[in-house]
């Protein structure tokens, strides 16, 4: 096993153990109720019973952090899945048909890209109302352009290749060509892009929740926990510390996973 393959497996395992597993098993793993209220012990410092301390409502921060992983996981993966479906479909159509279809779709991409950063997601959640399903919808509409551009470029490059010409000569129709021949060809870069997109979506969800536009009040989302922590920064900085490190760790993890995947899936880069 090469060094890169080993690093890839180690990082995937690490992300699985510290993020995916707690996210999926949150109800069984969390030692306390994440919504619990205990005003007698509010803002208590870390102790053996509560390793990360208690927040302003007296809820156990570790339990909230574990349940927060579930929200990040859910929003991160579902919004990226939705953006990928939209982006891949439109990118395939643009690259395959070219001409006015391509022109129209790429101008649409340009329009969506004219809203910098989170602005479009903020605007959409502002009118649709806060809530996690609206956040997923907004992030899906924010993220599809990256997938569309990537797939279009890959398809354009593949259109003149022998295997596509051969499939055409054998009578493959447009749907079969796109689904059976072109799509598998873009799978590798798509996987890399998805890893970066999950990191971006988790950060975006946390940002929206921090601004009060994501998870409903009280929900243990990491961004909302940071927003609550900001209010008690003076007397209880421990409330802000853990959620911030969690966001940073997961975003760093998925970004690095994307880098490693890109190297691993590209034979030229693997051997360089």
């Amino acid at each position: 096993m090469s060094r890169q393959t080993r690093a890839l497996w180690m990082l995937s395992g690490l992300l699985g153990v510290v993020f995916l597993l707690p996210g999926v098993l949150a109800p069984w793993l969390a030692p306390y109720d994440p919504l619990g209220v205990d005003l007698l012990h509010e803002l208590e410092l870390p102790s053996l019973a509560h390793p990360l301390g208690l927040d302003a409502n007296g809820a156990d921060i570790l339990s909230r952090l574990i349940h927060g992983a579930r929200i990040s996981l859910l929003v991160g993966f579902s919004s990226v899945a939705a953006s990928a479906v939209i982006g891949v479909t439109l990118g395939l159509l643009a690259g395959f048909y070219g001409g006015w279809v391509d022109q129209l779709l790429m101008r649409l991409v340009d329009i969506f890209l004219a809203f910098p950063g989170l602005l479009l997601a903020i605007a959409l959640v502002a009118v649709l109302g806060p809530g996690l399903s609206n956040v997923v919808l907004a992030l899906a509409l924010l993220g599809w352009t990256g997938f569309a551009r990537l797939v279009r470029a890959q398809v354009l490059a593949a259109m003149g290749r022998e295997y596509v010409l051969a499939a055409r000569a054998l009578g493959a129709g447009p749907v079969r060509l796109m689904a059976r021949h072109l799509l598998p060809n873009v799978a590798a870069p798509l996987l890399v892009q998805s890893s970066f997109a999950v990191a971006g979506a988790i950060l975006a969800e946390a940002s929206l929740s921090f601004l009060g536009l994501g998870a409903p009040p009280g929900t243990p989302s990491w961004g909302a926990m940071l927003s609550e922590g900001k209010e008690v920064l003076w007397e209880a900085p421990h409330v802000s510390l853990a959620p911030g490190l969690a966001i940073m760790g997961v975003v760093l993890g998925f970004n690095t996973l994307g880098d490693l995947l890109a190297d691993w899936l590209d034979p030229q880069r693997r051997h360089s």
């Binding site: 921090f210 920064l233 966001i247 975003v251």
Partner: peptide
């Protein structure tokens, strides 16, 4: 570079306030 890109500004900001202002 790695940490700077992954660090959310809404965490960095409060941490800077905590250290340099409080």
């Amino acid at each position: 570079a790695l940490l700077g890109v992954a660090m959310p500004s809404f965490w960095l900001g409060p941490m800077l306030i905590l250290l340099f202002a409080i």
